[in-house]
């Protein structure tokens, strides 16, 4: 007797849970042969709202965590991903990648996570400064995370584009609401399972599947989202999102990068999502000593 195959239900990821979309809708992305890949949640703006609430709740504790500990947790993501390599390669191939390309993409993703894990307790030292001023002040600048970051993942890749945008954001202590690739969503959901089994606190990464066209506007106009990053977005949508971001002066970046290239990982992806805080600390100026430190 042949065995009945058990198909995986791909659900969304909000606040450390895997609910179905609040709207109850779903869609069927197709593989290259026109066959349905799976039933995927077609999330709505209410899911975006719920995800932002979860992300806001997670932001405080995550940003206050010791930087070293954040590094450990990010490294843990890489460990868990390494253990499920085969599953990701398989999903990438089902979504049209060759075996070589798929293996390469998964390996690169793991390496990239390790790269940002390493930066967690270092970027602030590298980018902070003590500034020369002409008054009796010890003047220094350091970085603080922006808060909740909206991420519209690259549409043409399933895993690497997603990883390349999420990691620098959470490395810097932000929490994220991520809209996965609409046509290639499988790896995003499986990546959520990796996050879930790592030590990433609930709500730091929230992943929604569905139409970015429909949800990105809600994310861009949301007053409780502090930054919006996208990648290789079509100009029309990008401009629309830029306009909607104005109300609460969101930072908005659209990265036009080919993430499969090895060197598409850098410090500036972290610092883009940081605000600089400068402190003027009065110092005693004894006997005409200068304020230089």
């Amino acid at each position: 007797m042949s065995r009945l195959e058990v198909l995986k239900t791909y659900k969304i990821f909000i606040g450390g849970q895997f609910p179905r979309t609040e709207s109850g809708r779903y869609y069927k992305p197709l593989d290259s042969k026109g066959k349905a890949l799976a039933n995927i949640c077609l999330s709505s703006r209410k899911d975006v709202r719920n995800a932002v609430v979860a992300a806001r709740k997670a932001f405080g504790p995550w940003s206050e965590r010791a930087a070293f500990n954040r590094g450990q947790i990010l490294y843990r993501i890489a460990e868990m991903l390494e253990g499920r390599q085969a599953q990701f390669v398989d999903e990438l191939m089902r979504q049209g990648s060759s075996k070589v390309a798929a293996t390469n993409e998964v390996n690169l993703s793991i390496d990239r996570i390790v790269y940002y894990a390493g930066w967690c307790d270092k970027y602030n030292q590298v980018l902070s400064s003590v500034n020369p001023v002409s008054s009796s002040h010890f003047n220094f600048s350091s970085l603080e995370p922006m808060g909740v970051v909206g991420v519209v993942a690259e549409q043409s890749t399933s895993l690497i584009g997603l990883v390349s945008l999420i990691l620098p954001a959470i490395c810097g202590g932000n929490s994220t609401v991520v809209l996965a690739s609409e046509k290639l969503p499988l790896c995003a959901v499986t990546f959520a399972e990796v996050i879930h089994s790592s030590d990433v606190p609930a709500g730091v990464i929230n992943i929604l599947t569905g139409s970015p066209e429909e949800m990105a506007a809600t994310l861009a106009s949301h007053m409780d989202v502090n930054a919006l990053i996208t990648s290789n977005l079509e100009t029309k949508l990008s401009n629309k999102l830029a306009l909607l971001s104005v109300d609460n002066l969101k930072r908005k970046f659209d990265y036009e990068e080919n993430w499969v290239e090895k060197d598409k990982q850098a410090l500036h992806y972290i610092s883009d999502l940081q605000e600089i805080k400068t402190t003027w600390h009065p110092i005693e100026n004894v006997g005409g000593a200068s304020s230089s430190y």
Partner: peptide, 9 residues
């Protein structure tokens, strides 16, 4: 306004 709000305001 049609826009989700933040506690900040």
């Amino acid at each position: 306004t049609g826009v989700y709000q933040s506690n900040d305001y």
